[in-house]
């Protein structure tokens, strides 16, 4: 079997933070018992704490090839799945009851610092960053599992957990530097994004990609030279891995965000970057400088009416071109295992 790698490019200039991807994934996969608090797809406001809260300080991944210790995130750091006192408030006949999360006023949630960002008015700055499991080429989770319960498929590079072998040790959850593995306290197993394998096998794009109203996500194989992924990652070099320094070689790439000009003391526009380049470099590495220059130059070319293959690729006037070979509709796939219950990932 060929060692092909399916990959995704997420364009942060088109992501509007609406969380439709989060809901598409949630309603498809993580509403089973013990998964109430799981969001396999999250969209966070950056700069911010992210999900789980402060994940970039939780360790894991590699440095100079050496495994780095990590710590387990708590459910409260992912955001507790609040329940609400519907009965009491709506029908309970208590005209003073207030509809709010049961168990007191929360001080953190999955999307608590939405639209806050950093800096000071009028030069504050933020953008949205969707995250899923990166199905890394060198998965830290796979190498950390003492039971070999995590495997990477040859045909598409999707990383899966075999729940029959998993004993809930969660070394994988510590070792993943992106904290994209979730623990099911009811079944005592670790679970994670499976890149919508049952859909992808039938040529249907992942739910987070296909249901994204912002047309933000490109899908395809890394080695498919005339697909959008290859062009954006290798040809134009504008799609960059998040935290390459974690050395897991993630297969989800990001188009870095542009931003409107910042202002001087009088409030007039300056040419200084609104989003500090140092911050973007801390996320995407040094190549982000050149990537941003390319984006600005190609955008200016379009403004002058000149053609730009990069801009046409990012615009993707024909929606279905985003998804490379995965362009079928879920409705047309007979007996889709859309609601796969019970044990998942026992394909191995």
């Amino acid at each position: 079997m060929s060692d092909r790698q399916v990959a995704m490019v997420i364009d942060l200039n088109k992501c509007i933070g609406c969380q439709t991807c989060t809901i598409a994934c949630k309603t498809m996969w993580t509403s089973k018992e013990g998964m109430e608090g799981m969001w396999w797809n999250t969209v966070s406001t950056a700069p911010g704490e992210g999900t789980p809260k402060g994940w970039e300080q939780m360790g894991g991944g590699f440095r100079d090839g050496k495994a780095q210790p990590g710590r387990l995130p708590k459910q409260s750091e992912f955001g507790d799945p609040w329940e609400f006192n519907y009965e009491e408030t709506l029908f309970g006949g208590d005209p003073h009851a207030t509809l709010k999360p049961s168990g007191g006023d929360p001080d953190w949630g999955t999307n608590w610092d939405e639209d806050v960002g950093g800096g000071e008015y009028p030069n504050s700055f933020f953008f949205y960053i969707p995250r899923i499991c990166n199905h890394c080429t060198k998965p830290a989770c796979m190498e950390a599992c003492p039971r070999g319960a995590i495997f990477k498929r040859d045909e598409d590079g999707i990383v899966l957990i075999n729940e029959d072998h998993c004993r809930g040790f969660r070394f994988c959850q510590e070792a993943c530097p992106y904290k994209e593995i979730y623990y099911n306290a009811v079944t005592g197993k670790s679970q994670k994004c499976l890149f919508c394998l049952p859909r992808m096998e039938e040529g249907v794009a992942t739910a987070c990609s296909r249901q994204c109203p912002g047309r933000v996500r490109f899908l395809g194989f890394l080695d498919d030279e005339d697909g959008p992924i290859h062009k954006l990652v290798y040809d134009h070099k504008v799609a960059l891995p998040l935290h390459p320094e974690y050395e897991t070689e993630p297969n989800v790439f990001y188009i870095p965000p542009l931003a409107p000009p910042s202002f001087d003391a009088e409030g007039n526009p300056t040419e200084e970057d609104r989003i500090p380049i140092t911050y973007l470099m801390s996320l995407f590495g040094g190549e982000v400088v050149e990537a941003l220059e390319t984006l600005k130059a190609e955008k200016a070319a379009r403004k002058r009416g000149e053609p730009s293959e990069l801009m046409d690729t990012l615009i993707s006037r024909n929606w279905v071109d985003l998804f490379g070979p995965f362009n079928k509709s879920p409705k047309d796939i007979e007996a889709m295992r859309l609601m796969e219950g019970g044990q998942l990932g026992t394909a191995q």
Binding site: A67, P69, G70, E143, A144, C145, P146, F171, A175
Partner: peptide, 12 residues
């Protein structure tokens, strides 16, 4: 004797 580098590194 732990089976992988990660476990060794995180318990050193």
């Amino acid at each position: 004797l732990q089976p992988n580098d990660y476990i060794i590194a995180s318990w050193e």
